[in-house]
Design a binder for these strands. Sequence first.
DNA 1: TGGTAGTGTTACTGAATCGGAATATAGTGA
DNA 2: TCACTATATTCCGATTCAGTAACACTACCA
Lengths: 110, 110
Amino acid sequence: MSLTRMTPELLSVIAERFKAFAEPARLQVLYELKSGERTVTELVAATGLGQANLSKHLQQLYAAGVVSRRKEGLFTYYALADKDVLKMCDLMCGRLDRETSARRKALSAG
Amino acid sequence: MSLTRMTPELLSVIAERFKAFAEPARLQVLYELKSGERTVTELVAATGLGQANLSKHLQQLYAAGVVSRRKEGLFTYYALADKDVLKMCDLMCGRLDRETSARRKALSAG
DNA sequence: TGGTAGTGTTACTGAATCGGAATATAGTGA
DNA sequence: TCACTATATTCCGATTCAGTAACACTACCA
């Protein structure tokens, strides 16, 4: 929210971007792409998602600027768009970590 | 994704957290809370959202650990849970900034 | 005690969305 | 050209979700 003005349009765009991360299947894809670019077939095998389903998720991730793609013959290689993608996930996971450990502490303190 | 293992349950939890940010109305609330805690009535006035609608959004934000709350008499004061909430938004906005400026550059170069 | 204001909850409707099956498209090789 | 493979797209049923109206609850005050 460092942006100067918060118009409804801008809020929608930001919400769209977050929505890209707000799905287990898409997070799973990002997790797989962490170790490098992958073809759709590889991602199907790694995630267990259906090909059509995965393809649609990849379009969404691409439209949201979360992943990049590169065509090579029959194959399409997908990769994380930049480092901030993982930073984003780490930040969210960090929040989770602190929360669960706080809850653990609260429970043990009883 | 710094977490060691990525189970389906964990992916769901993370997705839930992102979902809290993935809505213009909720982002608007977070934007308002940036400058300090607010009552529900104040948020209704500031955002233009219906009271029932806003109340539900606040429950979701609270359940996701994004905001904290404090009751005082009739009023309930909501506030951002921690600094990482804004960090998250800034990170996303930063991505947007770079992207739009890159697009601008591409257009002017084109 | 009754009334009022702030907030939360429930029931409902329309819109968005996920997943799968079938189909379409594009590149490759015989 | 024909078949085959990798990927994208369309259509559909089921589920989820935002918004609204009506109602419930609770704290305060006369």
